[in-house]
Amino acid sequence: MPTPSTRRHATRLIDQLPPLPEDMKGNQGRERARYGFVIRTLKVLATDGAVTGDRAEDWRRVSRQLTFLWQMARFGDFRMTVAGLCLISREAEALEPEPVGLPAGTGPNGGDLIFPWQATADDWVAVVSVVGGPAGLFVEASMAMPNLRGIARTVIIVDRGHRFHRGGLPHADVLIDSTARIERLDADVERARANEQWKKNRQEWHGA
Rank of each mutant, 00 (worst) to 15 (best):
G107S: 03
H162R: 07
F115V: 01
E190T: 04
P108L: 07
V128M: 10
A187T: 07
I156M: 09
F115D: 00
A192L: 10
R160S: 05
G111E: 02
A192S: 15
D112W: 15
H165A: 12
L148M: 13
V158G: 09
R153V: 15
A126F: 08
S142Y: 11
A194Y: 00
A135G: 00
A172V: 08
Q197N: 05
L113Q: 10
R193N: 02
V189S: 11
V174K: 10
H165V: 10
G150I: 14
D186L: 09
R166K: 10
D122K: 04
D188L: 14
L137K: 13
V127D: 13
T106L: 14
D177E: 14
R149S: 11
G136R: 01
R191Q: 06
A126W: 06
V130A: 14
I151K: 00
P146S: 01
A192R: 06
A180Q: 13
G110L: 04
R181F: 15
T120P: 03
V139D: 03
D173K: 10
I157L: 14
G167M: 05
F138T: 04
E196N: 10
D159K: 10
P108F: 05
Q118D: 03
F138M: 05
D188Y: 14
V155D: 07
V139Y: 03
G132C: 11
